[in-house]
Write a protein that binds this DNA or RNA. Structure first.
Lengths: 256, 256
DNA sequence: CGTCCTTTTGAAGAGAGTCAAACCCCGTGG
DNA sequence: CCACGGGGTTTGACTCTCTTCAAAAGGACG
């Protein structure tokens, strides 16, 4: 089914890693071989449970997974998403325990990540890890300082960018196998409010979402309020000067 | 001034790393030597600016710093805190650029981290990195699914635990050099609401905060709605004891 | 003693949550 | 073929947490 969008499903990993570092043909062959014995994980199944001992690193070949944290009272937070092309590694440590539970959010296919024998692969893994950290930072900024409208927009942009890296996204669209409730759990919102915000975005004409396919209008792409500049001495600056959170498509009242 | 709480300021790093892995005397000596030529960073000064090339890893000897992200319109989010004993590393990568700006939130003292020549040091660094990731996850869960009251409580608990690892915290108190506004920027709240929530906590008798020193009543320690709070302790084997008598409304509706 | 921050306080508003019911789409099975 | 279920999506009405916008009150310090 995904095939309608991405032509060669089995190679999302090598496409992504090739984009992150200079890979040789042997490197690619190694990755290709690794995909021969994929592990299937059906929707809603836990791949790794927090606190358990971890196996080696994995590659996501297909499907979406999420690092999730569950509160005792049932609240849930999705910490990050894992999509095709991603490398799943637990920070090496004397006691290698998983720091979070990883759940399949759609039927997924994974395989063990081949050990980095070459400098190319090693660099690719390193770059992938750096990106992962980058997305964590972005998630924090999103939850901490963005409105619901902005969170969804920013998240859609991030996912599109990530899926594009793996070659599984169209120029302005991608397959989105999540429910609005899951989206809410990732963005710190209720499914009801996710729904209402999506409707607002549709009304604003910046987004289409039918049958699990998201299509984003170009304008949506432009609205990134973060864009960091030197933090400088703003830490010490009086609060009075700092702007308030714009809502809606705003975002452009930003003084670049 | 910090001396009133921790007796030997120069060794926060070796104390913390000793707790994370089995260090030999030469290891500790190496760390000790590294602290001989500290770098001073005054409050509000940027240590590293996002996008710049990075130097090597650093050790925080004293003071608090924060990874911060600034929006174009002035909104600010503090992604994570760096406190004495912490190791600052940028994910190695072909193009080693900083993923976020690091700003001193109080006068701080740092030094270059000695390269891990021994297995002990290597493990300590790895454990430290794992903990760092753990705190990022926790920060996400905090911002995404906790109320203001819970966020502050959870954050205070985390900081106490971290400072205790470095030996710079009392049994139920620690020095907190941040303003309420900075706290708000870390927890995704306004300084006004931080203030009001703190007052509520004082009224509830679970917290004192005078003159930059926070004192937490034992009960406060127990209110962690996250099911997974043992994770950090698992990484840092020699951890403190944690009780968990239930406490405070909104948390006790937790079902195992 | 005035200035600059930070902390408090107040009143009013708005974004997001809650609760509940209706609606829809689809696969199932009578 | 169509009623039946069940998950996901929509809607509506109401509540409440947290934000806004001032402005006053402390406090540290030259």
């Amino acid at each position: 089914m995904l095939k309608s969008i991405h032509p060669a499903p089995g190679t999302s990993v090598s496409r992504r890693l090739s984009g992150l570092a200079q890979l040789t043909d042997p490197d690619r062959a190694l990755l290709q071989d690794a995909t021969l014995h994929p592990q299937l994980v059906p929707t809603a199944r836990d791949l790794i449970v927090e606190g358990q001992r971890t196996a080696g690193p994995l590659l996501v070949l297909e499907g979406w997974l999420g690092r999730t944290r569950l509160f005792r009272d049932g609240r849930r937070q999705i910490l990050s998403f894992l999509v095709p092309g991603d490398v799943i590694t637990e920070t090496a440590c004397a006691h290698p325990v998983a720091l979070s539970t990883i759940t399949a959010l759609s039927d997924a296919r994974l395989c063990p990540a081949p050990p980095p024998n070459s400098p190319g692969l090693e660099q690719a893994y390193a770059a992938s890890a750096a990106l992962t950290e980058c997305y964590l930072f972005r998630q924090i900024a999103r939850l901490g300082r963005m409105s619901a409208y902005e969170r969804i927009l920013d998240w859609l942009n991030e996912m599109h960018e990530r899926l594009a890296l793996a070659g599984v996204a169209g120029p302005d669209s991608f397959v989105m196998p999540l429910t609005q409730e899951i989206l809410g759990d990732a963005l710190g919102l209720t499914s009801v409010h996710v729904n209402r915000t999506l409707q607002a975005m549709r009304r604003d004409g910046i987004l289409e979402w039918r049958g699990g396919v998201v299509r984003m209008v170009q304008a949506a792409r432009a609205s990134d309020p973060s864009a960091t500049r030197g933090t400088a001495a703003r830490i010490a600056e009086p609060a009075a000067q700092r702007a308030r959170p714009p809502h809606r498509a705003s975002l452009e009242n930003s003084a670049a």
